[in-house]
Simulated assay, not measured.
Amino acid sequence: MEKKVVFNNLHRKKHFDFFNSMNHPHFNITANVEVTSFVAQIKERKLPLTYSLVHVLSETANEIKEFRWRIRNEEVIEHKTVHPSFTVPTDEADVFSFCTVDFQRELKDFISEAERVRSQMKTNPSIEDEPGKDDLLFMSAIPWVSFTSMQHAMSYHPHDSVPRISWGKFFQQEGKTMMPLSVQAHHALVDGRHMGAYFQKIEAALVGF
């Protein structure tokens, strides 16, 4: 389900036009977030870390409408729900496959669906997106590096408006477990306030997991 977004505020419309006219309209923020409580809960409840983390990241994105906005044919549409498409290893090669899973509000339901799709990807990997499908969140894990910045591959002509969310290797800092988190979004849709809200909500969700 989707609906058209109309900018009735003149300044908001100018903001959209200004950034949408750029060759590279995406911006990226990378920050370390605490996952001490999250990791402890994962171990105690015997939950799969990747699926649980993807669920938290997706749920938070769905709570902010600007992360559900997409540019299509010079118009802005709002999806009711956006779904994670995240990278997973395969048995076919030493490069990843995309694993696209319909977002489920209940964690157990999401894990079950992710397991089903993941089993298909092991021997039948996919790297292509479904044409015309933009109700997605592109996610990737870089578990080998506690990175401090991230640059994503993407098409610029025409550029897409799907947010990119990546996380890196956990590390210890002052007795806490930390995780680098990179969030990239189209600046015509997502501004600094919305990006800041995403990080604030993620931190609260991970602490309260």
Rank of each mutant, 00 (worst) to 15 (best):
H186R: 04
S140E: 11
W69S: 01
V35C: 05
L189Y: 01
W144R: 13
V6G: 07
Q184A: 13
G132A: 04
M195A: 07
F170P: 02
S112Q: 08
Q173S: 12
N28Q: 11
V5M: 11
E203F: 01
S97T: 11
R105T: 08
E34Y: 04
L10V: 13
K108L: 08
T81H: 05
L47N: 00
R193K: 09
M139Q: 05
K43G: 02
Q120E: 14
P143Y: 11
M22T: 06
S58W: 03
F67D: 00
Y198V: 02
N9F: 06
H11N: 15
E66D: 04
I64W: 04
D191Q: 00
G192R: 02
Q172T: 14
H24N: 09
P48T: 04
G208L: 12
V6M: 12
I127P: 00
A93S: 15
D134P: 00
F67I: 02
F110M: 04
I202A: 02
E66P: 00
S52L: 03
I142M: 13
P89W: 13
A185H: 03
D134N: 11
S119M: 02
F67K: 00
E92I: 12
V95I: 15
V162L: 01
P89R: 13
D160M: 12
Q172H: 12
A197R: 13
I202C: 08
S97F: 04
R105P: 00
E130M: 09
H11L: 15
F170S: 10
H194E: 14
Y156L: 14
D17A: 07
R68F: 10
N32Y: 08
I29L: 07
D135T: 05
C99T: 12
H152C: 03
Q184D: 13
M178P: 06
N8M: 14
S126C: 06
K201T: 10
L57C: 11
A40R: 15
L137C: 03
Q104W: 01
K176F: 07
Q151R: 07
G196C: 03
H159K: 07
K46R: 15
E115S: 11
K65D: 04
V39A: 00
P48Y: 06
S119N: 07
A205M: 09
S52Y: 02
P48I: 03
A141L: 05
F27N: 01
Q151F: 02
R68W: 12
F86W: 09
D94K: 03
V145M: 10
